[in-house]
Amino acid sequence: MNGTCVSPRPLDATSTPTPMRRRDVVLHELDGEAVVYDEAINTTYRLNGTAYFIWHACDGLTDAGAVARSLAERYDVPVEAVSEDVAKTLAGLLENGLLVAGKNE
């Protein structure tokens, strides 16, 4: 048999330290929020302003700490104040398949 059979592994923040936003979805930015449509599973998601910022920051090279720092900078708050929310949001985005493994993973 040619090729390698790879078992799908569930993505989570531990196994995906530098997640990357999916490019194969339909994205509409509306007044700072976003609507993302995943045609493969015919599902639509609404991301509020913060979730959209976090999702957009996931370029496949940036880890959760860096995302938290840039969010804290944007809202001018201590990074400790947003770290937990960033982690939860990343977990939710990974769980719903809107983020995939990063470029170096």
Binding site: H28, L30, D31, E33, A34, V35, Y37, E39, N42, T44, R46, L47, N48
Partner: peptide
């Protein structure tokens, strides 16, 4: 918000599946 409205419109659509 418009994003909220879009999601609600999708829920109330009869032929969303056809248009995707």
């Amino acid at each position: 918000s418009r994003a909220d409205a879009l999601l609600r419109l999708a829920r109330q659509s009869f032929n969303f599946v056809k248009f995707r």
